[in-house]
C-alpha cells in the first residue's frame, strides 16, 4: 500500500469531510498559495487537482464516499455552539411591559392547577370505572 492509496481529497485541500463544491474550490486556491510559499510541502499541484476532482465527483456520486476516511466523523463533536462573551447569544428586544407580573403568574398557576386536576381526575376516575352520573 502506497501513500497515494491513502490520499484523502478533503485533507489535501484542508477541508472537513463533506465540504461543498464552493468550499472545495476555496480550499484548492488556498492550498495552491501554500504550495507556492512552501515548495517542500508534502503535496503537489497534481495532488491538489486530483483532490478537487475527487471532491467534485463525491458531490455528484456520494456513494463513492465509502472509500474516503471521514474527518471529522461527527461534526457535532467539534462544532461548538457554546455561547459566551465572544460569541454572544441573540438579544431579545427590550420588554415593553412592566415587571409587576405577580397577578398574571397567580392566574397562570390557578389555571395550570385546574388543568392538571381535571386531567388527573378524568384519567383516574375513568380508569377505575367510577362515577359520571348525568351522562
Amino acid at each position: 500500500m502506497t501513500d497515494i492509496d491513502r490520499r484523502n481529497p478533503y485533507i489535501i485541500l484542508g477541508l472537513p469531510f463533506g465540504s461543498n463544491e464552493e468550499e472545495a474550490r476555496a480550499g484548492f486556491a488556498k492550498a495552491r498559495r501554500r504550495l507556492r510559499r512552501d515548495p517542500d510541502a508534502q503535496y503537489t499541484t497534481e495532488d491538489l487537482t486530483w483532490a478537487l476532482h475527487q471532491i467534485e465527483q463525491l458531490i455528484t456520486h456520494p456513494e463513492l464516499a465509502i472509500d474516503v476516511y471521514r474527518v471529522p466523523a461527527d461534526p457535532g463533536a467539534i462544532e461548538s455552539d457554546a455561547r459566551g462573551v465572544f460569541h454572544p447569544a441573540p438579544h431579545p428586544v427590550a420588554r415593553t411591559t412592566d415587571t409587576e407580573s405577580a397577578e398574571e403568574w397567580e392566574q397562570l398557576r390557578a389555571a395550570a392547577l385546574s388543568n392538571a386536576v381535571r386531567r388527573v381526575l378524568t384519567e383516574r376516575l375513568e380508569a377505575s370505572a367510577q362515577y359520571i352520573p348525568y351522562q
Binding site: A89, P92, R95, T97, T99, S101, E104, W105, Q107, L108
Partner: peptide, 29 residues
C-alpha cells in the same frame, strides 16, 4: 399573559419548537 412571558424571556427560559410564520415581529423579537 404578556408580562409573565416577558419574565420568562428575560430569564432566557423560552424556546420555540419550530420556526414561526405569522407571529408579530414584536413577539419574534
Amino acid at each position: 399573559a404578556r408580562r409573565a412571558l416577558d419574565d420568562l424571556v428575560d430569564d432566557f427560559q423560552v424556546e420555540l419548537t419550530e420556526a414561526e410564520s405569522d407571529l408579530p415581529d414584536e413577539l419574534v423579537a
